[in-house]
């Protein structure tokens, strides 16, 4: 399970958008094609030309363009246009390193090892979970996992209609991802709830009362 990292709620990465995320200190660019299929991609956040972060770039149809010199990379991560030399056939060796990415339960999941086997046990999570919010927590990931009741190898913790997942952008910090089933509390309610949980974790306060709000359904 640990091989698949939940990195973002899907509402943060809509059609035509680019977002940088970090996984254990590694910089990853998530981007979604501005094309009919609107496929989501996860690549190393580093342009093969001069190393610029691709997450500063832009989406052109089904390609990701680098902000620095405009090299464009197609869905297969191969460079297909060098604006300074538009007629040059770009060698296939110029490409970005790719990771595998899945969209499930309102979240983007990335495997940096390129795993293809998205685990089966996740099939019983609510199919139509809606993204609420990804919240940065300045605390070790273990502390946040413990607070929300996630086993170290668990992908998601469901508390009734509320789904929680955690990943570590860099040592000492955590990203908390919140999703909801259609019959759950409103996104706004859950967003404020997540802020209270974050503040409790960071402030070293008791998190159980905040978690108990979920159980009581009293998150208003």
């Amino acid at each position: 399970m640990e091989r698949w990292q939940p990195v973002s709620v899907l509402s943060n990465i809509r059609r035509g958008e680019v977002a940088g995320v970090r996984i254990g200190g590694h910089e990853v660019v998530l981007w979604r094609e501005d094309a009919q299929a609107a496929t989501l991609h996860a690549w190393e956040d580093r342009c093969p030309h001069r190393g610029m972060r691709l997450s500063f770039g832009f989406v052109r149809d089904d390609a990701l363009g680098c902000l620095y010199h405009g090299w464009q990379f197609g869905g297969a991560a191969r460079c297909r246009l060098i604006p300074a030399h538009p007629r040059v056939r770009v060698p296939a060796s110029i490409h970005v390193r790719t990771y595998t990415v899945r969209e499930h339960a309102g979240l983007a999941w990335v495997s940096m090892e390129g795993a293809e086997d998205f685990p089966h046990q996740q099939a019983d999570w609510p199919e139509h979970a809606q993204p609420v919010r990804t919240v940065h927590v300045h605390a070790p990931v273990g502390q946040v996992r413990h607070a929300v009741g996630l086993a170290p190898d668990g992908g998601m913790a469901w508390h009734g209609p509320v789904g929680l997942a955690v990943h570590e952008p860099v040592a000492g910090q955590a990203m908390l991802h919140v999703v909801r089933a259609a019959d759950g509390p409103s996104a706004l309610t859950l967003s404020h709830w997540a802020e209270r949980l974050r503040d409790a974790v960071e402030g070293g306060a008791q998190t159980a009362p905040v978690m108990a709000e979920l159980a009581a359904g009293a998150t208003a």
Partner: peptide, 14 residues
């Protein structure tokens, strides 16, 4: 300040 800590601000800044 890393951009991924502020996803809502990233979308608004765009």
């Amino acid at each position: 300040v890393e951009r991924d800590t502020c996803p809502a601000l990233r979308r608004w800044a765009h």
